[in-house]
Structures are given as C-alpha cells and as structure tokens.
Simulated scan of single mutants.
Amino acid sequence: MVTAVIFGFAIFCGWLVFDVTKHKKLTLENVISSLVVGVVGALGWWLLDLIF
C-alpha cells in the first residue's frame, strides 16, 4: 500500500512537471489532471500488488 502511494505521488509530480513545461504556466486544470493520473496510477499499482 505504501509503495502504491509513493508511486502515485511520483506520477503526480512527473505529470505536473511535464504539463508545466509544455504549457509554460501552472493552471488548476494541470494540477487536477495530474492528480487524476496519479490516483489512477496508484490504484493500478495497488491492484498489481494485490494480484502478484
């Protein structure tokens, strides 16, 4: 579970940095989309951890 949270946070930070460099500014839309991607990544990692 802890690894899934760490993985989700890393995905969130990476996606946010990618969006900010792409759009040259930080917007609420970028933060929310990064948060959604981070949560989906964490849930996927958690499910993979449960299966294997």
Rank of each mutant, 00 (worst) to 15 (best):
K22L: 12
F7K: 06
A10S: 14
L50D: 07
M1P: 10
A10N: 06
V40S: 04
V2D: 12
T21G: 07
L43R: 06
V37Y: 04
L47E: 01
V17W: 11
F7V: 13
M1S: 14
I51K: 14
V31D: 04
A42Y: 02
L35C: 06
V20A: 02
M1I: 07
T3K: 09
K25N: 08
E29H: 07
K22G: 04
V2R: 12
F12R: 02
T3D: 12
S34A: 15
D49K: 08
L47C: 01
K25S: 13
V17Q: 09
N30T: 06
T21V: 12
V17R: 06
V5L: 14
W15Y: 09
V39A: 14
G38P: 02
F18Y: 15
F7S: 11
A10K: 05
L26N: 06
L47Y: 05
A42P: 04
S33T: 10
L43F: 15
L16Q: 05
G38Q: 03
F18Q: 08
G14V: 01
V17H: 06
T21S: 10
F18H: 13
M1K: 11
D49E: 13
E29K: 15
V36A: 10
K25T: 10
V39M: 12
V20C: 03
G41M: 01
L47G: 01
L48K: 03
G38T: 05
F9K: 08
G14N: 07
V20H: 01
D19R: 08
L35P: 00
K24H: 14
L43G: 13
I6E: 05
L16S: 03
L16C: 04
V40W: 05
C13H: 00
A4R: 00
I32Y: 11
S33D: 11
V20Y: 04
